[in-house]
């Protein structure tokens, strides 16, 4: 059971990490929608996100991929 949950943590962590790396603006929008006005980092009529926020999410994504790999390594008994 523990191994299955650890494997799930690895797979879902990798999935979320990849999403953060390839679509950082979408991740930012998920968290800011309804909490902050849209277009502040872009222009009226858009929901653009600033480069600074994209980079922050991509760094987090990198961390999630690394953690996912670690848990995968543990779950598969390679450690």
């Amino acid at each position: 059971m523990t191994e299955i949950r650890t494997l799930l943590a690895a797979v879902l962590g990798l999935l979320l990490g990849v999403v953060c790396l390839v679509a950082p603006a979408a991740v930012v929008r998920v968290h800011l929608a309804g909490r902050r006005p849209t277009g502040r980092d872009g222009t009226y009529g858009t929901d653009d996100v600033s480069d600074r926020w994209r980079r922050v999410v991509q760094v987090v994504g990198g961390g999630l991929v690394a953690a996912g790999c670690y848990f995968g390594y543990v779950a598969l008994g390679l450690g």
């Binding site: 999403v19 790396l21 390839v22 679509a23 950082p24 603006a25 979408a26 991740v27 929008r29 998920v30 929608a33 849209t38 277009g39 009529g45 858009t46 929901d47 994209r54 991509q58």
Partner: peptide, 18 residues
């Protein structure tokens, strides 16, 4: 260049407010 899905395709278009 790193934001390959952020040009209004795929996932980004599903997670767009506008």
């Amino acid at each position: 260049a790193l934001c390959i899905f952020d040009d209004r395709g795929g996932l980004a278009s599903l997670l767009a407010t506008h």
